[in-house]
Amino acid sequence: MVSAVFVATASAIIVLSALSMWRLAVGRTIYDRLLAAGVVGTKNVGLLVVLGFMFKRPDMFVDLALTYALLNFIGTVAAAKYLARHPEGGL
């Protein structure tokens, strides 16, 4: 029963990430795309932890999730800083 919860959660997160990809593809501005990429990244932190529970190795996957969260944040910050300085890169 418990593992069914994890499978359901994982598949829900994957479906939601796929839907966020719509905004990533359509965009309109580069900022919309970055926002959508951030959303996908945050969801995948959850997905990694759930995968850890599914494979019965949460200790390893939680570390991966933490690293992923850090990289996601740093990536967004770097892109935002770059675009503020080089507006022509985003438009």
């Binding site: 501005t29 900022y31 951030g38 969260a69 944040f73 967004t76 910050v77 935002a80 800083k81 503020a84």
Partner: peptide, 16 residues
């Protein structure tokens, strides 16, 4: 991190 990232993105967008 999430509010800060959102904050930075909007700030950058407004500057542009």
């Amino acid at each position: 991190a999430n509010p800060v990232a959102a904050h930075l993105l909007t700030r950058s967008a407004l500057q542009v």
